[in-house]
Design a protein around this nucleic acid. Structure first.
Length: 486
RNA sequence: CGGAACGUGGCGCAGCCUGGUAGCGCACUUGCAUGGGGUGCAAGGGGUCGGAGGUUCAAAUCCUCUCGUUCCGACCA
């Protein structure tokens, strides 16, 4: 027995092969899978439930900021793309194009686009709805009284990606895109800051992923934007993942798409616009930040069910009684607003347990004949493992569970935050940074802002596969954080 | 899109070099014993080897093309 390592539920481990571990966690946790459509994923119920929780929480946040939801078409007239020069640059090469409106069989019986049904004006499948929403806003905004106008839509978009990775980069993905318009610069600038803070709030306080808030360097700024703000998270392999961005477009976009209005002086002005988006990719971030070698570790506030209950059935005699007791526990939890689910399949107990471990259910509750008789239950925290196993009266549990879940959230967040902080190294010069990466540094490197002007920067970035992630707010724009990125 | 690798039952793999119609582990089904961090024994079901062509008496094994996946790179949420 030379194998001293305890068996892990996921093979390989994070240390052995991080990218493969990531794939295996998604599979083991039953969150998503590849589809017959190249580059597109099937989000399974357990993964989609996470997205629904993200949606629910963020949707409430933006409504508090007076954003209204609307829905725009999946198809966008191709000519819209050419209205915005920067867009052509950014998205044209990854657009799916709709050219026909009918299929028909040829002489061999093979289906194909009917030549007679060719579209005079082709459509593209939205890679973003910026142009069509902008076009709409241009019609809706006539007067300064129509501003601000804050629109958001939850939808799917498609970008024909060359290299896809489930959740992190797929050809089709789900997101929300917000597009706001304001009278002046102040309104737009403040808005894009506010939206970024909303993202930071969501990601940190619901997904337990600590982030660095900052501004993109000019080079990394979104095409056409005056300013791009970002939240950057660190994965357990030390790489960065941009979790959400918020752009201030100045009047650039309004001018190209015609969002103009009569201002308070009776003159014509162009609106100042912002756009902001967060996608299913953040689910990938959550996996890579919290997951461990036994699978997913769900942050409780977005977990499909923060409490999972396993009935322990030793024989059929007590089965119905135990199940009834479990059902009652679930009902009590739901009554206090906690999502709970019972696994009453007839799998073996250990298999049910490992199933919940791999899914990362924050609190596992075990209930057998013993608990039923005593009116107690046994609970274990996923983040702390079997050592955290404890028993208490069911009534006490109801009092404590919210606190336990909050504590799990804090523990996950703090653990990730400590990791991130320990893996940000400061370097005074570009040469110092290069030395760090050349000697195998895995995390971020923070340098003075002056490094951006170093003529050698491009070479160092290229050779070390790093990019400028952002200029963190915490240093008032006086520093830059670099790192490898997803 | 460039470089590399891979594609064999649900999952992970062996077989391919030295062609002769498929094997292992896990999962699954049944039974008995079990049952609080991956239970044991026994009996079973399931694949024609990503797809299309070619070579051959014969192909999972050789050749060509194609589709897909993964990793690295460039690009990007």
């Amino acid at each position: 027995m030379s194998n001293k390592k305890p068996r892990t539920a996921i093979t390989p481990t994070r240390e052995d092969d991080f990218p493969e571990w990531y794939q295996q966690v998604i599979k083991a946790a039953d969150m998503a899978e590849n589809s017959p459509v190249r580059g597109c994923m099937i989000i399974k119920p357990y993964g989609y439930a996470v997205w629904e929780n993200i949606q629910k929480n963020f949707d409430a946040m933006i409504k508090d900021l007076d954003v209204e939801n609307a829905y725009f078409p999946l198809l966008i007239p191709m000519e819209f793309m050419s209205r915005e020069a920067e867009h052509v640059d950014g998205f044209a090469k990854e657009c799916a194009v709709v050219t026909h409106h009918r299929l028909e069989a040829d002489e061999d019986g093979k289906l194909g686009p009917a030549p007679s049904a060719k579209l005079e004006d082709p459509y593209i499948i939205r890679p973003t709805s910026e142009t069509i929403i902008g076009d709409t806003m241009a019609r809706w905004v006539q007067s300064y009284r129509d501003l601000p106008l804050k629109l958001n839509q939850w939808c799917n978009v498609m970008r024909w990606e060359l290299r896809t990775r489930i959740f992190l980069r797929t050809s089709e993905f789900l997101w929300q895109e917000g597009h706001n318009a304001f009278e002046d610069e102040k309104g737009g600038v403040e808005d894009h800051e506010k939206m970024l803070e909303a993202y930071a709030d969501l990601v940190e306080n619901y997904m337990a992923v600590p982030v660095i808030r900052g501004k993109k360097t000019p080079e990394e700024t979104f095409p056409g934007a005056v300013s791009t703000l970002t939240i950057e998270a660190m994965m357990q392999d030390g790489k960065a993942l941009q979790s959400a961005t918020s752009h201030y477009m100045g009047q650039n976009f309004a001018k190209s798409i015609g969002i103009k209005y009569q201002n308070r002086d009776g003159d014509e002005s162009y609106a100042h616009t912002t756009s902001w988006g967060l996608s299913t990719r953040t689910i990938g971030a959550m996996i890579m930040v919290h997951g461990d070698d036994d699978g997913m570790v769900m942050p409780p506030r977005v977990a499909p069910y923060p409490v999972g209950i396993i009935p322990i059935l030793r024989d059929d005699q007590d089965k119905d009684k135990i199940l009834a007791y479990c059902a009652d526990i679930v009902a009590q939890l739901r009554a206090i607003g906690i999502r709970a689910k019972i696994n009453n399949s007839d799998s073996r107990t250990p298999d049910k347990m490992w199933g919940m471990i791999k899914k990362g259910v924050p609190v596992r509750v075990e209930i057998g004949a013993r608990e039923m008789q005593e009116g107690t239950l046994t609970h274990v925290r996923r983040d702390l493992g079997r050592d955290s196993k404890a028993s208490c009266k069911a009534s006490e549990f109801m009092q404590q569970i919210q606190g336990i879940l909050d504590d799990i959230h804090i523990t996950l967040y703090q653990r990730a935050k400590d990791f991130m902080e320990q893996n940000i190294t400061e370097a005074k010069t570009l040469a110092d940074m290069e030395d760090l990466y050349k000697s195998g540094h895995k995390g971020f490197v923070k340098t003075p802002i002056a490094v951006l002007d170093d003529a050698d920067l491009a070479r160092v970035k290229k050779e070390n596969a790093i990019t400028a992630r952002c200029m963190p707010f915490s240093d008032n724009g006086q520093s830059v954080i670099f790192g490898k990125a997803y």
